[in-house]
Structures are given as C-alpha cells and as structure tokens.
Amino acid sequence: MYIYSGASQPEESSHVDDQEKYEQFMARIEAGEKIEADDWMPDDYRQALIKLISMHGISEIMGALPEKEWVPKAPTLKRKLGIMAKVQDEMGHGQLLLRVAEDLMRPYGKTRGDLMDDLLSGDLKFHNVFHMPTKTWADAGMVGWLVDGAAIISQTNMLDASYGPYQRALQRICQEEVFHAQHGEAIIMALAEGTEHQRQILQESLNRWWSALLMFFGPKSADTTGSSKQDIMIKYRIRKSSNEELRQAFLDKYLPRVFSLGLTVPDETAHYDEEKGEWVYQQPDWNEFKQIIKNKGPRSKERLRLREVAYENNRWVRQALTSEAVGS
C-alpha cells in the first residue's frame, strides 16, 4: 500500500530539489497539515520519529511487565478484571505504536523482529520508570495513577503532532488513558481510605516512586545528561512543550490531589512558588537516571530477561505460522 516515496524519486535528486521539498514540508507542518508515511520527509525528521515512536512503543510493551506482576494477584474479582484490562490496553498501545514505527522503518527493511532484537541487545531503550521494582499492591495503584499520569501529560502534549499516523495512534491511546487514570485513582482511593496497613503501603509506594516520576520527563536541559532531543521535537511540531514545562504540568495536576489524600512526598522543600508560578523541588539524581536508561536500573536485567525468554521460547509458534502449509 505505502510506497516509500524516496524509492520512486530520481536517485540524483539535487540539493536544490531537496531544499524546495524541505521548505514545502515545513510550510505544511506549520499550517497544521499532517505528514503521512509515504510523504517526503527530511531524514532527521524520520530518524527522530523512529527513535521516539519505537521507544514509546517498546516502553508500553516493557511497561506492561511491572504492572503485570500484580495482575494475577489483584485482591478482588473486579480489581483482577480491571488491571487485566488496563495492562491489556498497554500491550495494545505498544501494538499501535510499533505499527507506526514499523511503517517508518520500512525503507530500511526493518520489521518487528528487528525491534525486539534491538531491545534485547540494548540498542533500543525503554522508559526509566519501567526499570523500577514493584513491591506491593500499592505500587500497582501508583503505576496506574501517577506513572500513567505522567505518561498522559506527555502523550496529550503530542495530540497535535505533525506526523499523522502517530497523532492518530495517540488519539486512541489518550481516550483509553481516561480509563487508566480512573483505574489508578480507584486503587489509590481505596488504599487512602483504607486500613492503617493500606495507608502505610500507599505512602511507602509514593516514597519509592517519587524520584522516578520526576525523572520521567527527562532533564531540564541537555547539559544535565549530555543528550536531549527536545529541540528537534519542538521544531518539527511533534511535541509542544519542553521537559520542564511538562514536569511542571504534571506537578500542577497531581500534587494537589496527592496532598488531598493526606499523602506526602519525600522532598521537604517541595512547594509551589506563587511568585514564580511554578513548583520548586529537589532535582533527582540525573546520574542515576543515565544509568537506569542504559539498562542498569534496579530491575532492568530481570525485565529484559522476562521479555527474552517469552520471545525466544515462543519462536516456534511464529516459525510454524510462516510455513507454506498454513493458509495464504
């Protein structure tokens, strides 16, 4: 269906042609038009999209794992069903996003299998929060409420993204996130209004997740960790806001709710500065962040191993159904 436009262009397309196409491309995205998979696009746009969307997609797939630990353990029938549906959605988000990434990678002849290989070899990274352990049922709630909350902030920010297939996938995803937000709230609310023990595991969980949540949006500027893709994302209208703006929006939306439940955050300096109109907080350890996303986080190895065993152990199934014997 999609023909990679590059392939049908004359090989020796001149620099002038490219310049013209580039200007046309920029004019289109500035006018709010959407770029489709087979449209001409600058190379760094394609590269940035592949990197962003494959990481986003694989993070959904890896993100299913920490929460999934609690799926068979969920404490009631309704919670078992709810968290199952929620984690299923996350796998579904992975499916949508990987399809978008796969279409972008077609000109390079790469497929789903290559993405899985890249993940297992460490070339394709997944989000910092999904390298963290989950220790109690409260963590299942914390992931649903605040990790999804952070994800919602960053995903809604790209709902107007210039790349059509990504924008449409995000539209579907954000619709489902409304359920995720409420699923998370429901678990948290029951714990917050529950027994001593329930309130205790809830507070402990928040203490455990706090710095990972701050890290979620990435460092304020490139100098912190030496790499940041935020500028190109904004230039090409993939997202609108900076890392820090997103983190502030997250704190805006969630901290009042956190406090209203009688919970505290493990940072005594955290407060809203009325004058500056922003939240003041202690920076998380960005060196630790760098280690985590290099697959050197607390649970990185185990999660990758889980994915690897499941992937390799089921290879025979995929091989069986590629054989000529089946259908057409």
Binding site: A64, L65, K68, M91, R112, R315, R318
Partner: peptide
C-alpha cells in the same frame, strides 16, 4: 490465562 498476559508469542495475540 492472566499469567500469560504480556508473554504471548505475538503482541496482537496477547491483546
């Protein structure tokens, strides 16, 4: 079945 979630041979099948 719930133990399988996230571990099926194929993402689409998982869902």
């Amino acid at each position: 079945g719930s133990e399988w979630l996230g571990l099926a041979p194929h993402i689409e099948e998982d869902v």
